[in-house]
Structures are given as structure tokens and as C-alpha cells.
Design a protein around this nucleic acid. Structure first.
Lengths: 320, 320
DNA sequence: CTGAAAGCGCTTACAG
DNA sequence: CTGAAAGCGCTTACAG
């Protein structure tokens, strides 16, 4: 039998109306009563039924989604994000609407906004703050609540793994521009190298576009000049796919003669791709939860979600 | 004031229970009564409230989504599809669940399945048929209800446009394997050429992967051998991005010295990309509607959604 | 501050 | 075949 507001009311010795008021954070409830009700709810693990709530209120919570513009919106990464959001929507009486790129003319009222890291962040945040709409960022930025994968930790993990496999000529393909995540991944990677204390390491970083083509071109150019690197860390899986393409075009066998590891966990992009995987479902879940909780209105909260190494088969010991 | 079942009942001179039975297609309603109620609903443009329905039934319509496996799942195209589905879900008390790649072990009950064109279609359809679950395909396949963009018409449109711009050395980059959509696009393109009746046309088709890298490689190889084509039609926008990358690497200016047009309408992949655009929101909407209507259980229906040419700036007159 | 009661829009045994 | 009534789980004036 489903746990309802009635049962909570009975056990707390109050009416259903009062329980409802507690749930909705109305101020007209005695401190004592509130705490009592809250305790019962917690003990029984009660969660209000969003459907009944919606029927009764004749409205649902509206969460605006603010993706950036440009090709990034169509990236495999966002693909996963949409799927995760689609799952999040189930069961929460929540409505997602995609916000227009140009900010101000908010047609419909939104209760909170979920933003992705993009340019002009500050300006947008300011607009939202003025309107009193809480914002949650996927990524991190001073003064804003956000959820982000452990980019730095992931970069370190990639570096450590390559070093453990004996690679000493390392290449990092990264993204030009000041993207927080790219900087974090790079600095984690460098930290791993420094922390290893190994002598005679050769480490190069090349910057380009974070796409397949970007990875392809960087790798191709790297291969054209001098002895090729054997341990390659790409800031995104898309770049890794491109890098693998270039290695193939140059006849360099992976993982026999070179190892490649990407970042994001989109291993379906290339069968067997090794990658540092983000936990996108968890990130989406946390972000939506923060937004629903109205965090951002009341204080700032930063959540860092762990990443995990996926071994795949593009990783192997350094060639002799 | 919202139009409710009560108002319908009043105007039809029956009880709300009876209206409800009509809505739900219960058989225990007199033909006469049913038609009368239906007429009133239609006249007033009544639509049942999904939220109330769900609260009352304690269940919602569950639509399984069956995407294929592999990299395709992460493609920009699917990206758009997820977004469109996310929008579709709003307001319809419908739950989407992603079905596992391996078919049989249907954990939760699903009311209908939305499938995307993938391999082993026949086998899957058979399984569903056995279980009595209606299926709707995005794509087309004999004997199954489906929604598909006008692939052939789009291919023709691309061909006509390139010819109208004076291009006479044409190249079509397409996808290896027997994908219905790729075959349709190619045949539309060829039809345009034949129908033009122009003499002295040079037309080549190359097959590869439907990705950026696939497009890049095909285009690069085409450029390495002989006089380069000037009018290039790619079966997907991803391939077009790759083709543009190769043209850039070879120093061929677009659109001065070569024109490129893709297919799908994912123009954000490359600023200014010309493309034959699918109307993905409409396709998603129609597909979900078919599924909800239980089409597939009762007869087969095929819907073809028109495509549109997006001019962009990768299209120009043929060089002299 | 809190309870009793009506109401959100629909479905479904239960009688007839 | 059809109506009257209870019920889905919650919210919110209205009294007190």
C-alpha cells in the first residue's frame, strides 16, 4: 500500500492539511508540529506523490534548460545529458523547457534554471539573479551552485595509468580557449606527471578543437614531426576518436605502438575506447535535485561527482 | 475554465462515467450513445487530462524506446531526437523507458515501442508481435507502422539545387551497408540527375562511414585523384562536416571552388552548412502519437514528413 | 496555528 | 447498457 499523506497525518497525530503545509514549507506551522511531522516523514521514508500534487495545484514545477549555442549542443556528451534528463523527468512532476539562446524575454515562468557551461555565463547569471530565479550550473563557477565531474582527478587518473603502463613520451590533446573543464583535466594530467618524479619524461600538449576533426588534425600534425608519442591523453572522447583515426591512417597500431585514452566515457563512439568516464546520470540527477530544492536561492552548493577509468582496449604497455 | 468530462457529460446528456467509458473505448456502451458523446467531444475539442487520468488509474502509459547499439546512439541526429522526445513527454502522461539492447527480458510492461531503424529489425518486430505490443518505427519497413522523413525527395532536392547552380562534376558521399535512408537519398539524388536530361554530367558515388571521419576520408581520397568535383552531396551532415574539413585541408575554398550540401538539418555542426533538413520535432510527435493510438495493433500506417532545403553558405555557383 | 471539508479531473466497481 | 458514488493523493480557502 502506498504511503500517503493520510498515514503521516495519522502517525503524527495531526490533520492532512497540516502535513501538506509542512511539505510545502508554509510558515504557518508551529515549530514543534513541524519537527514532529518531519520526523515521521523521515522515519517512514515518505515522498509526496507528484501526480496528485500536480492535479491539486493545477501546475507543475518548471525547470528551464539552458544549453549553449553552436555545435556543442549536438555533441555526444549532450546526447547523454538529454537522455539522463529524460529519465529524471519521470516521476518528478517537473516540466523541462529549453530556454532560448537570447536571455531576457522569458515567456513562461520558470521556477529554476539548469545551465551548462558556456560563454557569457556571468551576464546570464546576473539576469537570473535579478529575476530571483535560482540557477544550477553543470560545471563550476565561483558563487554559483553547480555539479561537475571530477575533471582534475580524472586527468590525474589518466596520467597515472599511462605512466604505470611505462609510457614516457606523452601527448595531451586539449581544447583551445578557457574552458574550465579542459584546464582542470590538463592540470590533473600534469600533476600526475610531476608527482611521479620520473626522470626523462617527454610531455607535449597541443591545443585545437574538441571534436573528432580537431583530434584528427592535432594527431596527424604530431605524427608528421619527429618520433611519435606513445601515451596519448585526449581531453574529450571525440578528440580520441579523431586521434585514433589519424593513428590508423599513419599505420600505427593501437595499443601495440601507441595507447590512447579519452575523457567522458562515451566509449560507444569507438569500440574499445579507453576513457575516463563521467557519471552523467548522477550529474543530471544531482543538478535537477539542486534546482528543485531551490538551492541557489538559499546559499551555494558545489557537488563534485567522481569519475572512473574504463580500460577498453586502446591502452597497452609502452612499446620497447 | 478547463473543459472537463463533466461538461461533456452535461452536453451529451449522460453521466461522466459513460463519457469515461467512451474515452477508454470500453465496449459496454451503446453505439448510439457512443457516437453522440464522441460528437460532443469533437465539437468542443475536448482532450482528457492525462494527470487526472494517471492519478485515477495509478499507472501511466509506458512507451519503450528502442535505439540501436553502437556509436550511432550518440550521433547528433539522436541528440535531436532525444530533445524532441523530451518535449513530447510533457503534457502527455507518458513514460518513456529506454529498452535494453537485448530484447526478450522485458522487465517492466510497456504499452508500445518506438523503434529506430537498426539491424535485426525483423527479429525484433517478430518478438514484439508475439507479445502483442504495437511497434512504431522511425524509418520505413514493409508491414510496420512508421514515420520517416522524405529521404528520396530530399535527395532529389539536393541534386536539383546543385544542378541549378551549374555544377556538372558531382560527388555523392554515402554510407556503406544497406540503410534504407541512405539508399533513398541516393536514389533521389540520381533521379534528379536523370530527370535533368543534362549531357556531359560526371557523377561519382563513394561509400564509407556516415561520420565526420568517414566524410573526411572519402573527400580526401576523392581530392587526391584527378580533377575535383564541385558539387558535393553528403548523405549526412556529419559526413558534410568531414568533407568540409578535407576541402579546407586541401585549400579548396567553399563555396567559391566547391559546394557542399548535407542531409538532416543539423546545421549547428558547422556554421553555415547547407543541408536538407528533417523535421525531427514533427517526426517525433507523429511517432509518439501513432504509438499512443495503439496503431500497429490495428493496421499499419506510414507517415512521410516533408524535408526542407536550408541554403546556408556552403553553396554557390559552379566555378568557371 | 490547525482541522474539516471541498475540490483538482478522471476511473471503476456496484447496482440496476 | 448506464448512473450514482466512492476514490486516486494532495492542496487550500474557510472557520475557529
Amino acid at each position: 500500500m502506498k504511503l500517503t499523506i493520510g498515514e503521516i497525518a495519522r502517525q503524527a497525530g495531526v490533520s492532512t492539511g497540516t502535513v501538506s503545509r509542512v511539505i510545502n514549507g508554509k510558515t504557518t506551522v508551529a515549530r514543534q508540529t513541524r519537527e514532529n511531522v518531519l520526523a515521521v516523514m523521515k522515519r517512514l521514508g515518505y515522498e509526496p506523490d507528484p501526480v496528485a500534487r500536480e492535479l491539486s495545484m493545477r501546475t507543475k514545477f518548471t525547470l528551464g534548460i539552458w544549453v549553449g549555442s553552436g555545435a556543442n549542443r549536438l555533441s555526444p556528451y549532450f546526447n547523454q545529458v538529454w537522455r539522463a534528463l529524460l529519465r529524471e523527468i519521470q516521476g518528478r512532476a517537473t516540466q523541462f523547457i529549453e530556454m532560448p539562446v537570447d536571455i531576457l524575454p522569458l515567456r513562461r515562468r520558470v521556477d529554476a534554471v539548469l545551465m551548462f557551461h558556456c560563454d557569457a555565463i556571468d551576464e546570464r547569471l546576473e539576469t537570473l539573479a535579478k529575476l530571483g530565479i535560482p540557477a544550477v550550473l553543470i560545471g563550476h563557477h565561483p558563487g554559483v551552485s553547480g555539479v561537475t565531474p571530477d575533471d582534475e582527478g580524472g586527468g590525474r587518473m589518466a596520467g597515472q595509468r599511462l605512466l604505470a603502463l611505462g609510457h614516457r613520451r606523452l601527448l595531451h590533446l586539449s581544447v583551445a580557449g578557457s574552458f574550465q573543464w579542459a584546464l582542470d583535466r590538463a592540470s590533473g594530467f600534469k600533476a600526475a606527471i610531476e608527482e611521479s618524479g620520473l626522470p626523462g619524461l617527454d610531455q607535449v600538449t597541443l591545443l585545437g578543437e574538441g571534436t573528432v576533426l580537431g583530434g584528427y588534425r592535432l594527431m596527424r600534425d604530431a605524427l608528421k614531426s619527429g618520433p611519435h608519442p606513445t601515451g596519448i591523453f585526449c581531453a574529450t572522447d571525440e578528440m580520441a576518436v579523431g586521434a585514433l583515426g589519424a593513428l590508423a591512417d599513419f599505420g600505427i597500431a593501437v595499443p601495440q605502438n601507441a595507447s590512447v585514452i579519452g575523457f567522458d566515457g562515451l566509449v560507444e563512439l569507438h569500440p574499445g575506447l579507453a576513457s575516463i568516464a563521467q557519471d552523467i546520470p548522477v550529474i543530471a540527477h544531482q543538478a535537477v535535485s539542486l534546482a528543485l530544492a531551490g538551492i541557489g536561492r538559499k546559499g551555494v552548493r558545489q557537488i563534485i561527482v567522481p569519475v572512473a577509468l574504463i580500460e577498453g582496449c586502446t591502452l597497452g604497455p609502452a612499446p620497447q
